[in-house]
Design a protein around this nucleic acid. Structure first.
Lengths: 164, 164
DNA sequence: AATTGATGGTTACATTTGCAACCATATCGT
DNA sequence: ACGATATGGTTGCAAATGTAACCATCAATT
């Protein structure tokens, strides 16, 4: 029987989750301390900063977030005057989002932080570690995009994950 | 200046988080559908199932969970009669946890599920992908354990992550 | 043995999240 | 042109989570 020997610390979902939390929380600490941003807000900022004007839906697709998360993040950033909305006048359901100058400034600072952190990480993990990790992640990313082809409306938040 | 070109989808924390969610949620769907378990509950079960009798604190260390998560998971599993507590009579602060026969049965079924899922994953990602991923994760795990040496009480839940 | 400080574990409270229902507008089939 | 259906986005509510404060017990110092 296959009934014995199961070790959580060799189980991929567990390992991935642990690694993601470690790496992610440490970075979150940076921008939370300095700007009081949440992760959805940071991601939204990053998406808009790098791709410019786009809709909420597109933000979600580019940053793998459920639409409610995006909606709330957009609201928060709007409060801060880091982004502004504008109605599309062809299709009035959708609104275009754009960073204000203040938002762009924050974006520039944040991505500088992000770059430094990534460099730090690369130093910490070593070239080999980074490279292995990256190819491993690429394999998963491929699986993600494969899984997003012609699907029955998946139950949960997985939907958001297969964005773009 | 280094002010241009930052792509979220090349940022390691983002990639890791996305991958972890994809892989993790898909598995969670399995055991949530079949047993109505939460992730902390599943992890607690796994820890106790594989290591036998242990305290809440040890569970947290083995599965990288904050003590409040463990506390709640233990309570839930106790309700289900999947585990029982017993007081240590040398030190009455701590209590030992142990799976009941029903709990052990559930554990066996769950790890069977887990094994199948991991196999599925390996097939999906291919041998190279898996291997790369595993060495990459190992590098992070090393960093985690390095970071857990003689530290000032880290702010948040990072504490739980450096478990054992 | 009394005080001080650590430790295992629980709980109250605020915040974050996921989900489903919803609103407004647009599109499709007829 | 009209009803059905779909789509972008928001919101209400319940559940999950993080944080800090807390309780009980133990260990160390005096």
């Amino acid at each position: 029987m296959t009934t014995d020997s199961f070790e959580l610390e060799q189980f991929l979902p567990y390992r991935l989750n642990r690694a993601a939390e470690f790496v992610g929380l440490r970075f979150a600490a940076h921008y939370r301390a300095k700007y009081g941003l949440t992760r959805p807000e940071w991601r939204t900022l990053a998406a808009l900063g790098s791709s410019g004007r786009m809709t909420s839906k597109a933000v979600g697709a580019h940053s793998s977030m459920h639409k409610t998360k995006v909606s709330r993040a957009v609201f928060a950033l709007e409060q801060r005057r880091w982004l502004k909305r504008s109605q599309d006048d062809a299709d009035r359901r959708l609104e275009h989002l754009e960073l204000t100058p203040a938002g762009q400034q924050a974006y520039r600072e944040l991505i500088e932080l992000a770059r430094r952190y990534q460099a730090e990480l690369e130093a910490e993990l070593g070239g080999n570690g980074i490279e292995a990790l990256s190819t491993g992640l690429a394999a998963i990313e491929q699986a993600i995009s494969r899984s997003g082809k012609g699907k029955p409306p998946e139950p949960n938040e997985l939907q958001a994950l297969v964005g773009f």
